[in-house]
């Protein structure tokens, strides 16, 4: 059995949790609270923290409190350096962000956390978010086609970590990416070290 939990507003799921005894109403921008929560999860062996995102201000703060106001990648970058085992999964929209920016940020988080980054790929159809990017809401088939382009852009084209004769300029464990697909082009070359993962498959009961 695998457990994960949520890093959201740092209030809790109950309506009105933001004004509950022992809860700091300022938690919605508290990186310290996110670090404390993540360390608690790590104490319990949780595999991942999941940080949702919504790139606009939502109403309803009277009951739920404010939430999802801070950039998730920056928040998880801070948590990454204060924890050592728990996975760090953040929501990233495929609809409004450029593939290169997404890939670069998640790769950086993966490197900073030594292989603990996860991307919750979501499509976005909310007009409030679209307005923040100055774009119209894309139709459904376009929204769901976009993630495949983003995933492709993280494909390594080199043999990771394997030195090829004559390729002396490639650092060990680095790969380059070059991808062009449809409307969206990701033509930049990035150099990122590979985070190595031992393959070890536990039995179902021990997970």
């Amino acid at each position: 059995m695998i457990l994960g939990t949520m890093l959201g507003s740092s209030y809790g799921a109950l309506a009105g949790a933001w004004r509950a005894p022992g809860i700091d109403p300022g938690n919605f921008t508290s990186t310290d609270a996110q670090v404390r929560i993540s360390r608690t999860a790590e104490r319990g062996g949780f595999a991942f923290m999941f940080l949702p995102d919504f790139a606009a201000v939502r109403g309803g703060e009277e009951h739920a409190g404010l939430s999802m106001t801070m950039d998730p990648m920056l928040a998880l970058a801070a948590v990454a350096r204060e924890t050592s085992k728990v996975g760090l999964v953040a929501t990233g929209s495929t609809t409004f962000q450029e593939p290169y920016n997404l890939a670069r940020q998640y790769k950086a988080l993966d490197v900073m956390s030594h292989g603990r980054a996860g991307w919750n790929a979501v499509t976005t159809s909310d007009p409030a978010v679209a307005a923040n990017y100055g774009r119209p809401v894309a139709d459904r088939s376009e929204r769901y086609h976009a993630p495949t382009r983003r995933s492709s852009s993280s494909r390594p084209s080199g043999a990771a970590g394997e030195g090829t004769p004559g390729s002396g300029i490639r650092p060990p464990g680095a790969t380059s990416t070059r991808r062009r697909s449809g409307r969206s082009t990701c033509g930049a070359i990035t150099w990122r070290p590979e985070v190595r993962c031992r393959s070890r498959r536990p039995s179902r009961a021990s997970r």
Binding site: R36, I37, R207
Partner: peptide, 12 residues
């Protein structure tokens, strides 16, 4: 395979 656990209050 596992659970996404969402507690009533975030810290306690």
């Amino acid at each position: 395979d596992g659970f996404w656990v969402i507690p009533d209050l975030a810290e306690s």
